[in-house]
């Protein structure tokens, strides 16, 4: 399924432009994200990476002044036709740059999404919580204190809690926005191992400003620069210097940004 010649398209973005008032954040982006791949997006700050993610799960409608033009097709349906934006979001897990442990217990942090989806059975919730925390490599550290506040965990633990929470939604698509900013290198490596496992079950979009992280994880990588998608291709090709635009090579080799 993964290695067929023509992988199925999970997310199809056509002619996407994003404006904040007069300022343009993203211009005319076209890209496909395939099922069960890790799709890396690299680029310096202010390149429109976060705006791009916001658009995919329709967080744009709560951001005043954000204007989106273009078409995004998710699971074969255009986002405009998803009439229930909450249902759409529940299919997409998001991990933000800074860890957000909600001010609930660790257990409730992970049980929140299943509860919202209507799971009431305590045994069922227990199973979900344990599974998600285990997959986020956090279970062993917190299994004895599930009733303590999630917001009191350390930064790295909170970030893994955030990932566990995203997994508890059972998403089709997991979007990570520079997840390693507030996490130590060891934890980062552990999370990266988790992601490699997870891609067998879901599609992952990984926005990162660590070029090497994209190299380690991503199957394909896009390079965003100042609101343009400069380059997109197999990660192998990009990092072996096989690029169409010189700027990509410069960025990857660390000559700017």
């Amino acid at each position: 399924m993964v290695n067929t010649n023509k992988p199925s398209v999970k997310l199809k973005v056509s002619n996407l432009s994003i404006n904040y008032g007069e300022a343009s954040a993203l211009r005319d982006v076209n890209l496909d994200v395939y099922e069960n791949e890790i799709f890396g997006i690299i680029g310096p700050a202010n390149s429109g990476k976060t705006s791009f993610l916001k658009t995919i799960n329709r967080m744009d409608i709560f951001t005043p002044g954000m204007k989106v033009v273009g078409d995004i097709i998710f699971n074969g349906t255009s986002l405009d036709q998803w009439r229930n934006v909450y249902a759409l979001r529940s299919r997409i897990g998001v991990v933000f740059p800074l860890p957000v442990g909600l001010p609930l217990t660790i257990y409730e942090n992970v049980a929140l999404a299943p509860r919202l989806a209507g799971v009431k059975n305590r045994t069922e919730l227990d199973i979900i919580v344990e599974r998600c925390l285990t997959r986020a490599a956090l279970w062993d550290e917190v299994k004895d204190r599930l009733d303590s506040l999630g917001s009191m965990l350390s930064g790295g633990q909170q970030q893994r809690l955030t990932i566990a929470r995203a997994l508890s939604q059972e998403p089709d698509l997991l979007m990570l926005d520079e997840f390693s900013i507030a996490v130590d290198p060891v934890t980062t490596m552990r999370i990266e191992d988790v992601l490699k496992e997870l891609k067998h079950e879901m599609t992952i979009i990984l926005v990162t400003n660590l070029v090497q992280q994209a190299y380690r994880l991503a199957d394909r990588t896009a390079f965003f620069l100042m609101g343009d998608c400069v380059e997109m291709g197999n990660t192998e090709d990009l990092f072996s210097g096989n690029v169409q635009d010189e700027r990509t090579r410069d960025y990857i080799e660390g000559r700017f940004g």
Partner: peptide
């Protein structure tokens, strides 16, 4: 209550009311 709590809950597919009731009020 920090906005990132609201954003995190909204991103999970919670409705406005669920965000307020499950996250903002407890916080």
């Amino acid at each position: 209550v920090p906005d990132r709590y609201r954003e995190a809950a909204e991103a999970m597919g919670a409705t406005r009311w669920q965000v307020i009731f499950k996250v903002v009020l407890p916080a």
